[in-house]
Write a protein that binds this DNA or RNA. Structure first.
Length: 309
DNA sequence: AATTTGGACAACCGCGGTGCG
DNA sequence: ACGCACCGCGGTTGTCCAAAT
């Protein structure tokens, strides 16, 4: 017996679980053809997928999007994640922004399965955040400041800064992170290179991390706060090669670096070489910026500046 | 050989923020 | 001002698979 039930509009049954290669193919083709800037909720309808828009978006971002690295994390990436997690906590999306080709989900999973225990161990042995490192560094450095610097009028330039030894490499070769001993890893210096240890290590120009520089300035100069626009100006000054030398602080750094290098017996041509790490679209890749000096043997001794906007 | 266990990764869920009508 | 849809994020759960029992 037929009942006159009100017609129910069937709720679209969305498939869940793992994506099939066919589904991937459909989604990839559609996004590549139409772009991923429309409404995600309409995407599965357009291509006949029994998925919801949210699921499509996630699949695209975490798996299908071009430029994803996949595969094992490098040691550098691991260190980066550990350091960023110390500073940012579970801000996976922010951490992912510093690691091109990695997704927040991927980093989050990797953290939980590989790095969490390691971090917990390290936590009990070392200062907890870079800020704490900086604070401890500044204490140890304050007594070793040999002379006030000429650029002391700017809050930006008044802070002690940590350096790590960088390396020399031929301009044509890829820049890889230098292998440094723990002994050398956190050599403390004043904001100039005054007192830079002339320990005979060839090509040991310092590496400065902007994150440390800027955050240190924020906390250590209570009455001379570096406001965000100054941060941006500083960053812009670094990124714009031509305006590089307008920065008094960096100018001082440069001359100190050159003094140091000449003391190392190098025949340096005093050329500042500077270049940002860029994405294909021209945006800053991972907050890194490199600069240094070159000699007449086409060797480059440089710093890598890491900036976290 | 069958079952259990645990690690690794993929995907989902819920919440808050934002933009728009 | 309000409601709605959408997006992005972080936490959680589900699934697969290899190693252990």
């Amino acid at each position: 017996m037929a009942l006159d039930k009100p017609k129910k509009v069937p709720k679209p049954k969305h498939r869940k679980g793992l994506w099939s290669p066919e589904e991937d193919e459909k989604l990839r083709n559609y996004i590549l053809r139409h772009g991923g800037h429309g409404s995600w909720s309409s995407v599965p309808i357009e291509i006949g997928l029994q998925r919801n828009g949210k699921s499509c978006r996630l699949r695209w971002i975490n798996y299908l999007r071009p430029g994803l690295k996949r595969g094992m994390f490098s040691t550098d990436e691991e260190e980066m994640i550990l350091a960023l997690h110390r500073d940012l906590g579970n801000k996976w999306s922010q951490i992912a922004q510093k690691l091109p080709g990695r997704t927040d989900n991927e980093i989050k999973n990797y953290w939980h399965t590989h790095l969490k225990k390691r971090s917990a161990r390290a936590f009990s042995l070392a200062p907890k955040t870079s800020q704490e490192l900086i604070n401890s560094w500044s204490t140890s450095v304050s007594s070793s400041l040999s002379s006030p610097t000429s650029y002391s009028s700017k809050p930006l330039t008044q802070v002690p800064i940590s350096f790590e030894f960088c390396h020399t490499f031929r301009a044509s070769s890829a820049c890889t992170e230098p292998a440094v001993d723990d002994h050398d890893h956190h050599t403390m210096l004043s904001s100039g290179l005054n007192g830079f240890p002339n320990d005979g290590i060839q090509s040991s120009l310092p590496k400065l991390f902007f994150e440390e520089w800027l955050s240190l300035d924020r906390t250590n100069t209570s009455n001379q706060q570096l406001n965000p626009s100054d941060d941006q100006l500083a960053a812009a000054s670094i990124l714009m090669g031509d305006t590089f030398m307008d920065n008094e602080f960096l100018q001082h750094e440069r001359s100190s670096a050159l003094d140091f290098e000449s003391g190392q017996g190098g025949n340096w041509a005093n050329d500042i070489v500077s270049y940002p790490d860029l994405c294909l679209d021209g945006s800053l890749a991972d907050g890194c910026f490199n600069f240094g000096i070159s000699n007449d043997h086409d060797e480059f001794s440089g710093f890598k500046y890491v900036m976290y906007p």
